[in-house]
């Protein structure tokens, strides 16, 4: 083991010192390349909603006060048994039974009609939701096995560009060592004649509820 490690490292060093090796300094160039043009908060949310919709996900809006009613309305359409992360805020939930994820087995999770989760942030330019195992998001398998995912995104967490999202997510990695999942629409494949077909292994139905609030 150690000998292989040393051999590979020695081969790398030999290869990179053959030519001119620039001084090692953490590169400081602008990795974003973009100076985001200022968008009004409203335009940002509109762009996010429009681009999520383009992935064939359903998008709805509500106010904080109407969140539980909005959730109830969507769930009525999809089935009857829903799983939620153990720490999902009770105040957001309608008056009905939910399966809380208290060490559920994979089979238990796969057997429900759907899952409800919060999210870390949204990216408007790409219509992406990011989950970082924060409050109300649960472990990764929870938003993976059920066929329906209702995801709550707070308008204040939506950023315009991918680099902005990475800047915000740095703390999730360095402070909590959280696993991250980027979700852009329901699962899909381009493997048949390079055309996008929605619905393979992940949730085949993704619904996004945008709440007019800075965060939870």
């Amino acid at each position: 083991m150690t000998t292989t490690r040393n051999r590979v490292l020695a081969d790398i060093r030999k290869a990179i010192t053959q030519g001119q090796r620039p001084d090692h300094q953490t590169h400081s160039f602008d990795v974003g390349g973009i100076v985001p043009q200022a968008l009004s908060a409203e335009a940002l949310v509109d762009m996010f909603a429009e681009r999520v919709t383009e992935y064939k996900a359903w998008v709805g809006f509500c106010r904080m006060a109407g969140l539980s009613a909005a959730i109830a309305a969507r769930l009525a359409l999809a089935g009857s048994r829903y799983v939620i992360p153990a720490d999902f805020p009770a105040a957001y939930l309608p008056q009905q039974e939910f399966v809380r994820d208290e060490q559920l087995s994979h089979d238990d999770i796969a057997a429900v009609d759907g899952v409800i989760s919060l999210s870390a942030l949204g990216i408007a330019q790409t219509g992406t939701i990011v989950l970082d195992a924060g409050v109300g998001q649960g472990r990764r398998v929870l938003t993976l096995l059920p066929d329906y995912h209702l995801c709550v995104v707070f308008a204040g967490t939506i950023v315009l560009t991918v680099p902005e999202a990475f800047t915000r997510l740095r703390a999730s990695i360095t402070e909590r060592r959280a696993p991250l999942t980027f979700v852009s629409g329901p699962s899909a494949t381009s493997d048949i004649e390079l055309n996008r077909v929605e619905g393979v292994h992940g949730p085949r139905r993704l619904e996004v509820l945008i709440v007019d609030a800075p965060g939870h």
């Binding site: 330019q125 790409t126 991250l180 999942t181 852009s184 699962s187 992940g202």
Partner: peptide, 12 residues
Amino acid sequence: ERMNPYTSIWTG
């Protein structure tokens, strides 16, 4: 695509 459907990032 503007973004692929799923990206996973894990740390240990």
